[in-house]
């Protein structure tokens, strides 16, 4: 199993240059059964990364380009009258897939956004009064442009919460960018990517993550972190218990990627920013989540 993870990471580094940490975080997110939100400016490799993962993980792949006139039915599917059978037939939408890339998710209207986000949480879709299960595993990778860009509908806090992690791509370093310019990375290499993992292996890995243990000492540290976010001076709204669970699950997944069967504080620290950043709003005179991490005592 460890070799599979290693394989994944190596293959990805060929496509997405200089973003090893982000790739690792993304895999961590999938192992923790979470959905991933990638936020950055256009052209930073968001879509390329999402595409690469679909190939690597060998999941059925669908992509929806979100636009302002996209309707819920375009995602979930519709019932069409079949004259031969003289009955309504359900035509499943693109959401019935293993991996869904929701590109530029914040360009769609809130109504459409919420259709997708409900499917993410419930892992089932209700159309015409009938609940239909989504396949397992079901992973959503959403990309969004920063909200200050034109023509965007910001995701409400409650919906941002549905994403286990939010990562930023950021500009590549000079060396990586040079490699990209030389054509040693990007879309061209993408096609040559080979599947590194099957859906069954992914489910197995997710179960292994659940078995990673967290000692009382570590849980106390997580509790201290949560408590610190709830003091009203720094953040307008603190982290919810769901966020606490997400933090623990992500830390477990990170420990698993490292090949450990137990979580250490550094795991929590690594996943804290991607897990917590999109859930916290720093108040006027508060501190950033990163500074909070530096202030909360790890040991006592």
């Amino acid at each position: 199993m460890d070799s599979i993870i290693k394989n994944c990471l190596e293959s990805m580094s060929g496509v997405i240059r200089g973003k090893d940490n982000e790739v690792r975080l993304a895999i961590c997110c999938f192992l923790a059964r979470g959905h991933l939100l990638i936020e950055d400016l256009p052209g930073m490799g968001k879509t390329a990364m999402a595409l690469s993962f679909s190939r690597l993980l060998g999941l059925e792949y669908q992509r929806i380009q979100f636009t302002s006139d996209l309707l819920p039915a375009d995602i979930l599917g519709v019932s069409i009258f079949d004259q031969s059978a003289s009955d309504f037939q359900f035509k499943p939408g693109p959401v019935f897939t293993g991996m869904l890339l929701a590109d530029e998710v914040n360009r769609a209207s809130p109504r459409t956004q919420s259709a997708l986000l409900e499917a993410m949480e419930e892992r089932q879709v209700t159309v015409d009064g009938e609940a239909r299960m989504l396949p397992k595993p079901f992973i959503v990778i959403a990309t969004q442009n920063p909200v200050f860009q034109e023509g965007t509908f910001a995701l409400p806090e409650s919906q941002q919460d549905r994403f286990l992690m939010q990562i930023h791509m950021g500009y590549p370093d000079t060396e990586s960018e040079k490699a990209i310019l030389k054509g040693e990375a990007g879309r061209l290499c993408l096609n040559s990517l080979e599947q590194a993992m099957t859906a069954e292996e992914l489910l197995l890995l997710q179960e292994e993550v659940d078995k990673v243990s967290a000692s009382d000492l570590l849980l106390d540290y997580i509790l201290r972190l949560l408590k610190a976010t709830r003091s009203e001076e720094h953040f307008e709204v603190g982290l919810s218990p769901r966020a606490g669970l997400a933090l623990l699950q992500a830390a477990k997944a990170w420990a698993r990627i490292d090949g450990r069967t137990y979580v250490v504080p550094e795991d929590v620290q690594t996943v804290f920013l991607p897990v917590a950043r999109h859930r916290l709003t720093t108040s006027k005179h508060g501190i950033s989540p990163g500074e909070l991490l530096a202030r909360v005592n790890v040991m006592v």
Binding site: E266, Q269, L293, A294, V298, M299
Partner: peptide
């Protein structure tokens, strides 16, 4: 001296 936010490994 350990910084508060520094774990044992770090």
């Amino acid at each position: 001296h350990r910084e508060p936010g520094e774990g044992p490994a770090a």
